[in-house]
Write a protein that binds this DNA or RNA. Structure first.
Lengths: 335, 335
DNA sequence: CTGTTAGCGCGTTCAT
DNA sequence: ATGAACGCGCTAACAG
């Protein structure tokens, strides 16, 4: 490949002149004529700077990594969009990975841990990462920002208002006249689950209804089917249920259908998080949309500030609130 | 951060000795005693090699990029798993991106184009990428391997047997007694769509049934709803339909339900590609599972060979065949 | 068996 | 306005 030096040789100028043209630097000034010459040669040869050399010299790679748990989960679509947009605006490329890849000894982890190719890491996990891996990460100077999760390791974090989301979902059912509302799904070491559940409890207490202990069955679709079984086997079915995650809500819906339970006439379902799946299933799912795009943007801003040595002001973002999207899986109780 | 040189200084040895220990090289041999000293210092200081310097020196980054169109599509789950596993086995880290990020001028694209941080690119797109971007890519020496797509730019490619998949789906319906079977979804510049459609046509002709011109409505969920409308407005509804993509099939199912059409009694639906969604919707979708994991593994092997200067033997992989997964969206025709 | 040396490609300071 | 020289951190060939 053509190197900077090669371009300089061909254009009959020094390497620093080429560098100045490529980077628009003012340190080394160059006349309009030589600039044109250089640009012509660059275009002709198809020169592109070597990122490794640049990263080494500049001591930053211009790339941030985003690692999420369960990449195939559609709820990340908006988040990634926000991250990508903000990162580009800040001059960064973003690369993605799945937390499942962060195994001890993996090359993926090595890339995250080793300096020079990744400037910062945005990490979205559910508290299921190997402590050892987290320890490695902690030992490195690469800034890590947690998305939707807190850590006892005192990492900075940003999150949407999950408590509010849980509360909104519950209040919606309560206001529709439901009295027996349950909370299903999630994982008790997860901040999001706890916050959403807390929102549920808050809303119930506020309405002077007795909250029931949440049934934390996990995250995926199967968490919904499991959740439904739990409700089923727990005596009388409630008339309303708030599900921790839209995928689980879809699973619960499917289980209800298989069991002959009519949604929404016998059971109203609200899922937290909005995704395309909500419009695919029948009945369409009522959901609480979370401002994931805003979260992504905010995360990038924070990490940018962090990289520039700023102290971190973080936590729950407030620029945009969760939003209830009423579809067909909810109705007033039929009795 | 601690550098190699720093470790050498602290351990009172030369840099090359440290390098040898870190990399397990035999070029420079080192005694057990010094090795222990060095390892102790490394552990104490928490030294990790600088990837940028390594990449510059070795002239390879140890990272391959995978760029897919519509990252949120669940059909990539298996593919990415295969790629990740194979890449790790070959000593590579893999980073992901979405084709939507490959815009002219984006930093993401710059990282793909610039040498030193990415050794090879695995690209899965549907023929919708900017020609200009493709041109840039072509001008670079970084190997590009196309997944599930061919290109007029003579890139090497690998794909699963999409034709077979289309054929299997169609034959299944035919054998169940259907005579009016249609093909819906996809995009006429896409190799996958064309291959699957060709499979449909082949099966129909083989059964001496008249294939109908495919209705190429796109890829997503909306392609299914659009497809259903098209069938609806085209006179008598067929009794069976092969849908290009499982997401579109789910969309078609939803549209059918909204229209009061009973699946599978009035209409049998087979989706190509298997994904969790097939088990979420009701009725559950009959699908043709494609060996995406095998495809990912093969792609990595190919690109590895390519990087080592081998000539490329490629095309449709045969180590694993598509597989019909019968669920509840198909039945014999009711008349 | 060990240390010295010479770059990899680039960006920047300093001297011209 | 321009070029020479140095070093970022690492590896591999070579000398001891």
């Amino acid at each position: 490949m053509a190197t900077l030096k090669e371009i300089a040789r061909r254009a009959g100028v020094s390497a620093s002149a080429v560098s100045a043209v490529v980077n628009g630097t003012t340190h080394t000034r160059v006349s309009a004529r030589t600039r044109e010459r250089i640009e012509a040669v660059i275009a002709e040869v198809g020169y592109v700077p070597n990122d490794a050399a640049r990263a080494l010299r500049r001591q930053q790679a211009g790339t941030i990594a985003v690692v999420v748990e369960g990449l195939e989960n559609p709820v990340y679509k908006e988040l990634l969009l926000g991250i990508y947009e903000a990162a580009e605006a800040h001059g960064w490329a973003v690369v993605l990975g799945d937390t499942a890849w962060m195994r001890s000894g993996s090359h993926f982890l090595a890339r995250l841990l080793g300096q020079g190719s990744i400037d910062a890491i945005l990490l979205r996990h559910e508290g299921l990462i190997d402590e050892e891996v987290l320890g490695h990460l902690r030992a490195r100077p690469t800034p890590v920002m947690l998305l939707e999760q807190q850590s006892d390791l005192h990492y900075p974090w940003v999150a949407v208002d999950d408590l509010m989301a849980g509360r909104m979902a519950t209040e919606f059912l309560l206001q529709a006249g439901h009295t027996d509302v349950r909370f299903v799904g999630g994982f008790d070491e997860s901040r999001t689950s706890n916050a959403r559940y807390e929102g549920y409890v808050t809303a119930m207490k506020h309405a002077r209804r007795r909250p029931r202990v949440g049934c934390f069955t996990g995250f995926g679709v199967e968490a919904g089917t499991l959740g439904f079984s739990a409700l089923r086997s727990g005596g009388k079915l409630p008339t309303g249920v708030v599900v921790n995650n839209v995928m689980s809500a879809a699973g619960l819906l499917a289980a209800a259908a298989d069991d002959g339970v009519d949604v929404p006439r016998q059971l109203s379902v609200v899922g937290i998080h909005d995704a395309e799946i909500a419009d695919i299933v029948r009945p369409r799912l009522t959901t609480v949309r979370l401002p994931m795009r805003a979260l992504g943007i905010r995360a990038v801003q924070q990490v940018s500030a962090l990289l520039e040595g700023a102290s971190t002001t973080l936590g729950v973002i407030t620029e945009e609130r969760p939003e209830l999207i009423v579809r067909a899986s909810t109705a007033p109780p039929s009795r």
